[in-house]
Design a protein around this nucleic acid. Sequence first.
DNA 1: ATAATAAGTCAGCAAGCGTTTACTTCTAGC
DNA 2: GCTAGAAGTAAACGCTTGCTGACTTATTAT
Lengths: 206, 206
Amino acid sequence: MTTSGALPRRRRDAAQTRLDLLDVARRRFAHDGYAATTVRHIADEAGVNVALISRYFTSKEGLFQACLTDAVTDVGRGTDDLGHGEIAARLARRLSDTPGKIEPGENRLRDGLLLLVRTSGDERIDDLRRDFLRALSEKVAVKTGNTIDESTLLRAQILLAAVLGMVLLRSTLGIQPLSAAGEDELRQPLADLIDALLGTRGHDRR
Amino acid sequence: MTTSGALPRRRRDAAQTRLDLLDVARRRFAHDGYAATTVRHIADEAGVNVALISRYFTSKEGLFQACLTDAVTDVGRGTDDLGHGEIAARLARRLSDTPGKIEPGENRLRDGLLLLVRTSGDERIDDLRRDFLRALSEKVAVKTGNTIDESTLLRAQILLAAVLGMVLLRSTLGIQPLSAAGEDELRQPLADLIDALLGTRGHDRR
DNA sequence: ATAATAAGTCAGCAAGCGTTTACTTCTAGC
DNA sequence: GCTAGAAGTAAACGCTTGCTGACTTATTAT
């Protein structure tokens, strides 16, 4: 059993509490949106006092920005190491909820993508998001073997919009059969989508 | 000029005030989300007192539900009269902001679609949304000349997710070139998208 | 062991929220 | 013209929000 193992785990660990807060905040911001999420709920779920949010992140917006920054590096890292043909398969696998784990709602990639679509009203945070999405669409264009002219960029962004829309519908509405679709069901449609928008025999055959 | 025309326009018109409130609320709910929108802002922008929202719609949630119901009939009506091939063209035209009008932000279809993605936390209102999206995806499947098995339904919902994602990115982030793309730029990518997901030579050629 | 400091808690603030109640002003029917 | 009732307003209500300052408790170094 897991009762009273060997790990000491200091009862007061600032770095760990910071991470706990980030973890809870990311999930709640992603699922409920910025305005609907309260700092008290975050603190309660993390098991710490509200005041620590102000201490570690200055403000609610500071915490949100920290979540977004983390999400950006997370999502960015996930796109570094993909080959040319396997994009759809990887995407399908990583979008279907928690391939290995038992817990139903623990998927950092999904929550990170959701965060990209949530807004706090602060224009400077939105700039962050914009810059990252722009960069991401360029990376997608390149990874699919395209040049990055305006037309291709537009198509890459439509692909991103599709993925974001799928994640949003799956996690906030629960519409069927989309929400229950697993890796196997998602792979082929995603492949078709990518091929149609950015595939080799796609948009250039005019 | 339009100064002091012939129309009398009673200074007190309950039905008209109700419509004004609905109009403002729809826009603000769609753009800022449910939690970030306050009844006072809505009332101020509509030029009436806050108490009237409670009178005409019982509560903030009542107003939101009324907006959503309107949006559902709006979006639903827009999909009734489309032929088989022109779907992409129509979609491109109606998604690009206000084809005819001068005003920049007046597009009922866009706001209606956005509302489908905004949630108030009330599960019964979410049911409304789910049912409509389900019906809409079935209609899309049929309009594209498909049967409505689970696989096709999934693909229709992915298409809907793509459209919703595009609308969301265009109106809340302003990422380029997606946000500035007009009818002409959107038509072909949308056509490719639809064809790949639900087209005749698409998903059945296994 | 003890002092210094980091980590965490507590209680309360000012402001904003959705909602309601009592009131005023306009409109329509006689 | 007068009046009943509809349409709209003003002000306050109880509550929640994000945030803060004074306080307590654990940790670490000497």
